[in-house]
Design a protein around this nucleic acid. Structure first.
Length: 477
RNA sequence: GGGGCCGUCGUCUAGCUUGGUAGGAUGCCAGCCUGGGGCGCUGGUGGUCCCGGGUUCAAAUCCCGGCGGCCCCA
């Protein structure tokens, strides 16, 4: 099997399946795939070790809402339903009977949650209320679907929903959400831009939307997280009212923020190489593989296997996720390729040489071997895990930075977007010009929040008026 | 939303133009042989030729419809 990451589309599809992560394109429903055992483990480690841990640490509580939402609820907030109506799956029958009220497979849960919050919230003392759930959501995508990137069944949707006493509190919550997402993506070594989406590209029903975007190996931008200030847009129609300390009754202020399967898509895409996956040790389902090198001499061979087993058990006791590959119908070289495809960070080779001297540990990211004393193995692996992670993280950030460029010229901007670069250009801030850029140059990602976006003395690239801010443009998924 | 390409054992693919026995590689299984980067040999396994309909004595091949995948443009 040959892998070539420069042909990203093919690389991505092949790696997903061949590494045993996700089987896509064979299940007979468009836009729906199957998490295989190895992929499920990775997904669970990312969710449990990173996403859930950080949300729990920051005072969020996990809940679980039904997948079905009655039409009447979904339609309560008019702007919201307008944004989604074209892509909702409807359950209209139960057995042979037509349902009185059609039930939607949730495309997102703002309406369901607001409905219940109207019962739960009555006093400022209950606020803020910070809930989240990790559930599948359904969207009848009309564009081409792609595994983990554009699905009709988004199998993993982490959606947080918070309610607050005031606009300012909700605003502060959005800032917290941004910090949380920084932590999550930093822990995975996934680089990101933070962009304030333009008014015409907000979440349906939001006052503003902030997005996390990353750059995929082919230069296209992938949105990997969003944060919305919902104002009172849902609490008014759903009558989520509470009494303030000053005894006035007000509608609560909400935010919502989500991360989907794309977190895994990005993880795979930004770190992988021509041999397959490269997984950060923290989330790798298998962190270490031990491979005994068979020996002609029977006595020696037995000894090698014994030591391999001891090393494996020793690491297990120390808490490492480790596998002993003692299959004897495969040659060591064959095994190397297999485990490299699966992104196992460390490989310990144990043969004749290791019986006398030090152990051989191979690192997946740089594909180099080092010698490690047996008694120092646990400690060294810890150190190497850190170096490993820092290395792949830095490489990923370097790549993303190299794809972001600036220009003040419309034609040049077009060319750069055509070359799959993210282009930063001065903008007057008027919607008219923004839409024109959207149409003629590239998708408007919005105003950068990860750097100073104010500009002075520059002209808008479309109309020539004085520019107010920088906006980012790119090809997107 | 518009345009294009494609669908054949698990995977990659030949065959389709000109209708007539579905062939290879890889994988998988068994045995032998090997073993520090995909070893080799022998044998075996595996195909509703995406689905439905039509034309025909005969369809993987031609025609129509559908489903699914990929690419480009908006």
């Amino acid at each position: 099997m040959k892998l070539d990451k420069s042909n990203f589309s093919e690389w991505y599809d092949t790696v997903l399946r061949e590494s045993g992560l996700y089987d896509y394109g064979r299940y007979p429903v468009k836009g729906m795939g199957v998490w295989m055992p190895f992929g499920f483990k990775l997904r669970r480690l990312v969710l449990d070790n990173i996403v859930r841990r950080i949300l729990d640490e920051t005072g969020h509580e996990e809940v679980l809402f039904p997948v079905l939402i009655p039409k009447t609820l979904l339609e309560k907030e008019t702007e919201h339903i307008r944004g989604f109506e074209g892509e909702v799956y409807w359950v209209t029958k139960g057995g042979h009977e037509e349902l009185d009220i059609p039930l939607a497979l949730r495309p997102t849960s703002e309406t369901a949650i607001s409905y219940m919050e109207s019962f739960w919230i009555s006093s400022y003392k209950q606020l803020p209320m910070k809930l989240y759930q990790i559930v599948p959501v359904y969207r009848y995508e009309t564009k081409a679907t792609r595994p983990l990137i554009r699905l009709r069944e988004v199998s993993t949707f982490k959606e947080a929903h918070t309610a607050h006493e005031s606009f300012e509190d909700a605003d502060k919550q959005c800032k917290e959400a941004i910090e949380i997402y920084k932590r999550i993506y930093d822990e995975l070594g996934i680089p990101y831009m933070i962009n304030m989406r333009p008014s015409w590209d907000r979440f349906a029903g939001a006052l503003y939307t902030v997005a996390f975007d990353t750059v995929m190996p082919d230069g296209r931008v992938l949105q990997i997280g969003t944060v919305h200030h919902l104002g009172q847009n849902f609490t008014i129609p759903f009558e989520v009212r509470f009494q303030r300390k000053d005894e006035e009754v007000d509608y609560a202020w909400q935010t919502s923020y989500g991360i989907s399967d794309r977190i895994i898509a990005a993880l795979i895409a930004v770190h992988g190489d021509d041999r397959g996956l490269v997984l950060p040790p923290k989330v790798a389902p298998i962190q270490v593989v031990v491979i005994p090198i068979p020996q002609k001499d029977e006595e020696l061979d037995k000894k090698v296997r014994e030591v391999a087993k001891e090393i494996t058990e020793g690491l297990k006791e120390k808490g490492w996720r480790v596998v002993l590959d003692d299959r004897d119908d495969k040659t060591p070289g064959h095994k190397y390729y297999e485990w490299e495809l699966k992104g196992v960070p460390f490989r310990i080779e144990i043969g004749k040489r290791e019986l006398e001297g030090e152990l051989t540990v191979a690192r997946r990211d740089i594909r180099k071997r080092t010698k490690v004393k047996r008694e120092e193995l646990d400690q060294k692996l810890k150190e190497m895990s850190e170096e490993f992670f820092n290395n792949i993280k830095e490489k990923a950030w370097e790549f993303m930075r190299s794809r972001i460029v600036q220009t003040d010229d419309l034609e040049e901007a077009k060319e750069l977007v055509e070359k799959r670069m993210v282009v930063e250009v001065p903008w007057c801030g008027r919607k008219e010009c923004g839409l024109r850029m959207d149409e003629e140059v590239g998708r408007v990602l919005g105003m950068p929040l990860d750097k100073d976006a104010k500009v002075k003395g520059k002209r808008c690239i479309t109309c020539g008026r004085e520019a107010k801010v920088i906006v980012r443009l790119a090809k997107t998924y």
